[in-house]
Design a binder for these strands. Sequence first.
DNA 1: GTCTATACTTTGATAGAC
DNA 2: GTCTATCAAAGTATAGAC
Lengths: 182, 182
Amino acid sequence: MRLIRERADVLPVLTEVFRTHGYEGASLALISQHTGLGKGSLYNFFPGGKEEMAAAVLEGIDGWFHAHVFDPLRSHEDPRRGIEAMFEATDRYFHSGERVCIVGVFALSDVRDRFAARINAYFTAWRDALADALRRSGRDEASAANLAEEVVAGIQGALVAARALDDPGVFRRRIEWMQALI
Amino acid sequence: MRLIRERADVLPVLTEVFRTHGYEGASLALISQHTGLGKGSLYNFFPGGKEEMAAAVLEGIDGWFHAHVFDPLRSHEDPRRGIEAMFEATDRYFHSGERVCIVGVFALSDVRDRFAARINAYFTAWRDALADALRRSGRDEASAANLAEEVVAGIQGALVAARALDDPGVFRRRIEWMQALI
DNA sequence: GTCTATACTTTGATAGAC
DNA sequence: GTCTATCAAAGTATAGAC
């Protein structure tokens, strides 16, 4: 019995390394150290090397958010409950602002172009799913779209500010503020 | 007559390279290429190497924001005009969302610890100067502090979202939304 | 599948000629 | 002050033994 038998087992560790160090900072040596796998094994799982690892990480994140955030936003009978669930999942996922958003970090760096499609898809899906829930909760199209954009951007800003000021309280207060907007 | 005679002449180019490629992505080769200076010359200006270059860039940005944003926020006779000037300067500086904020990028990366003091000082100065203007414009202490935090974080979020969605319109709309909050 | 060894490139930094 | 040459270290990636 081994701890790691397939790509899916490496993914969480990989995600954490990329989140902590960014794309360029996540060296293969660091990845090898954290996963406990030699470079040969890593290339066995990811023949495309580092780029394929990062792509898998982004895909995994996208999958998680679809399952726990985007889909509930769209399918919840009571749209307000879906939005509530979104804020809870977001707070949990980002450890109340102590974690950063890899997709946001990638968007700001020069690897954005390489993963542009995935990054764009993630933010678009979030914004549109939230806008849909807001419209179903009674808002007109324009107001729903605007508020959705505001909240999606606001979460990213809360993460940046919390890290910059080294104060998770910033994240908590911004989330509460946004919840009051709904 | 030379194009570059002192540190101050290199700084704008340096800033642009760090903004575009981040700390790790801004290799000396890239910097040498964009400044037109050999590595020897660069180390003549910055004996501390890349870290000193990045520190100089952050200091330059801090100086610019103090002169064009923070100080006007505090000293403008009519605080609302100071806030108006802040939004205008911000929009100009970030090229309406086409540029990113180096300080924000650094805050999200793993070089944050190395420049933590400078990063924190930049965001603290912005938030506090804005809170002061809001208080002078009639808001109570708590409301001013909260709104200042919201706007400072909101600008960062607008930059992330605009880059991620590859749509400067996002930045423009978020700025307008925040202006309406004041 | 996993490891070690290795190839090859790029990195930040230094030395020294001019 | 500026350049070229060079260094040691770290980077990604590959090869091949087991």
